[in-house]
Design a protein around this nucleic acid. Structure first.
Length: 474
RNA sequence: GGCGACGUAGCCAAGUGGUAAGGCAGAGGUCUGCAAAACCUCCAUCACCAGUUCGAUUCUGGUCGUCGCCUCCA
């Protein structure tokens, strides 16, 4: 069974094969760095993480570009308001996004190119479009001529003939040939110059339009045809549609063979999270509320299929944390197990193998991690049951551990952050063990309650006492 | 107005033409000095209506509801 992905271009699930066997070229739309990324952005970025992990697991070398848009209207506004040039303003937010990604254990992309560092590539691309008649200059702006590209609309399936042409015209300064022509290059304003967002080019002093950076940087790092391009659904139109138009008009080659679009994370009411409207949560907000980043990762990745709209609630994140705990708990039990020689563990062995197959199938079916995780937990329950009954041997243990590892290759939640206990806490735990040996349960219970108040739960097991952190309380 | 998606138990959620995975929460048990953990049991007829079908949650049509895109946005 091979990976099948839902391709937005065709609206169907298709088998994924990279153009060059063994190498996957993927471009994913990153953030505009004018403020903190919100947790909905993170959902998309974790989708990219899931894709690249699966590609690597299937034996491919991954070449992954995620752009950082570091020049746009809001960046210019904010920089100007802060009395800065944009190159002083954006680094802080770049760092903020990259740090969030790290906390959520996203594998780093191979490249994080910045728009402002690729102006020459954009100039070249725009020049080619001008030469080929796909673009025209007008009073310092350069527009893409949509009528010159008949395939326009193939991705978004928008029928542009019937489209109302009102709003767009009103917001643009100059007359365009057609209302839906979009800007490749924008003449610099006074403010653009003031904040360092203006470049000297053959078409005049100006700055890039929104879409051109992706076309220019994608081909620079990955070539003219990508295997896969991903982004949030809100980018499908016009951003991705325009990328296709620019790239294919210039290169006369397909721009990307597969398009993946991740659904939105909504706010609790079901409405879209949006930076500009202010109704959004950041990773920092959730961490401040006491949530574990690993639980957030689990929920964003496996809480729902990526093409399903969903929202994060405290309850959902707590449920995810509990699932993570159960996975870790099982792994620990298995690792501590000393199998009895000759034990018959055929049942759990078979169950684990079936689970592995089911898990793999779920992932192959358009990265259905939510379903895959369901399969894993079916095995988790049975493995715990078999452990209770003493019916796990070496083969069974290995098979279950393999399943956990297979899932964790996507989830990446088993490994905990290294944590140690304060000395006085260690001493208290030791004292309690002493008391228990004396069967002085009053003392031992008092110590346990004391530690519970400090956010530590103790578990007595055959292998000794274990501890774990929980929200501190009484 | 145009295009589109979704509506499954308290919550998160998978899925299929033949009477609905998994997780969290909850209830009752087993185990335990007591707990915790683990396990066992219980907990939905899939928004509504009509149609197709031997049979629909899954297909078709309609109704209601929620949301998205069409304009900067993962």
């Amino acid at each position: 069974m091979t990976l099948r992905l839902h391709n937005s271009l065709t609206g169907r699930k298709e088998e994924f094969q990279p153009l060059e066997p063994g190498v996957v070229r993927m471009y994913t739309c990153g953030p505009t760095v004018w403020g903190p990324a919100h947790i909905g952005n993170m959902r998309s970025f974790l989708l990219y993480d899931l894709i690249r992990r699966q590609m690597r697991l299937s034996g491919c070398e991954v070449r992954h570009v995620m752009n950082l848009t570091d020049v746009d209207d809001r960046i210019i506004e904010q920089s100007d308001a802060a009395g800065m040039v944009i190159s002083e303003f954006t680094p802080r937010w770049e760092e903020s996004v990259l740090s969030d990604l790290k906390r959520l254990r996203a594998e780093p992309a191979e490249w994080y190119p910045r728009a402002t560092q690729h102006v020459p590539e954009m100039i070249e691309l725009i020049s080619r479009l001008l030469e080929l008649g796909h673009a025209y200059a007008m009073e310092g702006d350069v527009y893409f001529r949509i009528d010159s590209f008949p395939a326009y609309g193939a991705l978004s399936k928008l029928d542009r003939r019937g489209k109302p042409v009102t709003t767009r015209v009103a917001t643009d300064k100059y007359e365009k040939e057609s209302a839906s022509d979009f800007a490749l290059w924008k003449a610099a304003t006074e403010r653009d110059r003031r904040v360092g967002a203006a470049w000297q080019t053959p078409f005049g002093l100006g700055r890039p339009g929104w879409h051109i950076e992706c076309s220019a940087m994608a081909s620079k790092y990955l070539g003219e045809t990508l295997d896969l391009h991903a982004g949030g659904v809100d980018l499908l139109f016009p951003h991705h549609e325009n990328e296709i138009a620019q790239s294919e008009a210039a290169n006369r080659k397909p721009f990307s063979r597969y398009w993946l679009h991740g659904e939105h994370l909504t706010i609790a009411t079901g409405d879209k999270m949006s930076k500009s409207s202010g109704n959004f949560l950041t990773l920092s907000d959730l961490l401040a509320a006491g949530h574990d980043p690993v639980a957030i990762r689990f929920q964003l990745l496996a809480g729902a299929h990526y093409r399903q709209r969903t929202h994060l609630s405290d309850e959902a994140i707590r449920a995810a944390a509990e699932q993570v705990r159960r996975l870790r708990e099982l792994e620990l039990r298995l690792s501590l197990l000393v199998p009895r020689p000759g034990v018959d563990d055929a049942a759990i062995y078979e169950t684990a193998l079936d689970g592995q197959a089911a898990y793999r199938e779920a992932i192959d079916d358009d990265l259905n991690l939510a379903q895959g995780v369901g399969q894993v937990f079916e095995v988790v329950r049975q493995a715990n049951s078999a452990l209770d009954a003493g019916r796990v041997g070496t083969a069974g243990r290995e098979a279950v551990l393999q399943l956990l590892a297979a899932a964790d290759a996507h989830l990446d939640v088993l490994r905990g952050d290294e944590e140690s206990l304060d000395e006085d806490v260690e001493r208290l735990i030791e004292e309690r063990e002493e008391a228990r040996r004396r069967r002085d349960f009053a003392t031992s219970d008092r110590i346990r309650d004391e530690l519970r108040g400090r956010g530590l739960v103790l578990e007595d097991s055959r292998e000794g006492v274990r501890w774990r952190r929980v929200p501190a309380s009484g």
